[in-house]
Design a binder for these strands. Structure first.
Length: 416
DNA sequence: AGGATACGTGCGTCGAGGTA
DNA sequence: TACCTCGACGCACGTATCCT
């Protein structure tokens, strides 16, 4: 019995020891996971003092010949304010001064907007003498938000124009709401705002798979990012940092934000060059067409038809050619270049196997109202009626044809 | 996932010019 | 004089698309 008792005591003792070892190992592994690694150990920067406490700031400087993909940052100074304001569709930007312009991008805790989304990193780029400077303000925890906003606010007060990518819908409303939530006032009042997303769409949506900054950056600027963090992971990385206090995973977020800002600068230059000298800055027919469309919308029809014609010299898909021919014909019509318009409407009819109504209608209008050649109008309408089956279109054609026939009757020499 | 924005489309209105 | 036709413009609405 004693033997059994002794053995049981020994087993209990062994179990206690195993449990102690397990506990020690557990604590050791937790201490490894939760080892605090501060942001200043991972990202070189300093703490700046604000009325609301300290804020972490990283600064980077880029020399005059620094390239972002294929574009030198300082080429932006060759961009004309007129082109920028035209791209932005904002006349206020006719006065843009690049030295008074900030390039801004934020990293946040999500997309949701409203009170629940915080900005934890604000990147701001600007030209300072012969260098381009990027400042990145970082919030180590939610209680540093006012310090971050205060530091950003102080910098922004030196500028009057902001450049962003989708900032009209995302960054700026979020910044404004964070200032309101913090009971603070933004120093920069009613700035000029050049949001590059919209001109990028106008220029490249026909050619690129999408117009996200990363796609435009890769396909237009030739920027290749290594070890980039996809945007959707950014909130998760920040929340993990808050939990573990290990800042290592934040380094790529700083790099991502920095690259976004450099790309904004390069993109402004690239867009301006493209608009000012399209044939030298793109080999793509659809880019040239898009530029033609921009002139079309500005009612600058001479340039518009010039670029439509240039675009048509490229090897394009059938539906792309059709779209360009259609817009070119209407641009000629608005210029009063009727013969060019007529030529295109005829070409469209010849090219398309399926019936398209508008070139027949336009030709009929041209012959009836402009040339007053009712016979020609009659022929084109009858030609259309011979092909088309759609009842609604037939009714419209027939109505027009009846009127023409009436006019022909009036013209006919009266028999006495 | 939430919100802002631009764009395309359809419809109504208006003025100019032409016609019965 | 009344009506028709066209083109330009503005408005409303639905849709697609970016940001993290």
């Amino acid at each position: 019995m004693d033997d059994i008792k002794k053995r049981l005591e020994k087993i209990a003792q062994l179990k206690k020891n195993i449990s102690k070892i397990n506990q020690a190992q557990k604590e050791k592994s937790i201490s490894i996971v939760n080892q605090e690694i501060k942001i200043e150990e991972v990202v070189s920067g300093n703490f700046i003092s604000t009325p609301f406490g300290d804020s972490f700031l990283r600064e980077n400087y880029f020399p005059q010949d620094y390239r972002c993909g294929e574009v030198e940052l300082f080429q932006i100074f060759q961009s004309s304010a007129k082109t920028i304001s035209s791209l932005a569709r904002d006349n206020r930007l006719r006065e843009i001064d690049i030295h008074k312009t900030v390039f801004l991008d934020t990293e946040t805790t999500g997309l949701a907007g409203g009170a629940g989304t915080y900005i934890f990193l604000v990147g701001v780029g600007y030209f300072a003498k012969d260098q381009f400077c990027v400042r990145q303000y970082f919030m180590r925890d939610f209680n540093e938000e006012r310090a971050l906003l205060s530091a950003v606010n102080e910098l922004l007060s030196d500028f009057n124009t902001i450049v962003t990518y989708n900032g009209k819908a995302f960054d700026i409303p979020l910044i404004e709401s964070r200032f309101i939530m913090s009971g603070m006032k933004l120093n920069i009042k009613n700035p000029g705002h050049f949001d590059l997303l919209y001109p990028a769409r106008r220029l490249w949506k026909r050619r690129l798979e999408n117009c996200s900054l990363s796609t435009v950056e890769r396909d237009i600027l030739g920027v290749i990012r290594e070890n980039d963090v996809p945007g959707y992971l950014v909130p998760e990385i920040y929340f993990r940092y808050l939990k573990t206090k290990d800042a290592r995973a934040l380094k790529p977020v700083f790099e991502h934000n920095l690259q976004d800002i450099l790309s904004l600068v390069a993109l402004v230059s690239r867009m301006c060059f493209l608009i000012e000298d399209p044939l030298n800055y793109t080999k793509y027919g659809m880019d040239i067409f898009s530029i033609g469309r921009m002139f079309d919308e500005e009612k600058r029809y001479e340039q518009c038809t010039h670029y439509y014609t240039e675009a048509l010299k490229h090897n394009l898909a059938e539906e792309e050619t059709s779209e360009i021919l259609k817009l070119a014909s209407f641009a000629y019509k608005r210029q009063g270049e009727w013969e060019d318009a007529e030529k295109i409407w005829k070409e469209i009819i010849e090219r398309n196997r399926e019936f398209i109504y508008y070139p027949y209608e336009e030709l009929a209008k041209y012959y009836e109202h402009h040339l007053k050649d009712y016979q020609k109008a009659k022929i084109i309408l009858e030609e259309a009626l011979n092909i088309v089956e759609n009842i609604f279109i037939r009714e419209k054609l027939q109505y027009r044809l009846n009127r023409i026939k009436g006019k022909l009757l009036c013209q006919a020499p009266k028999l006495s």
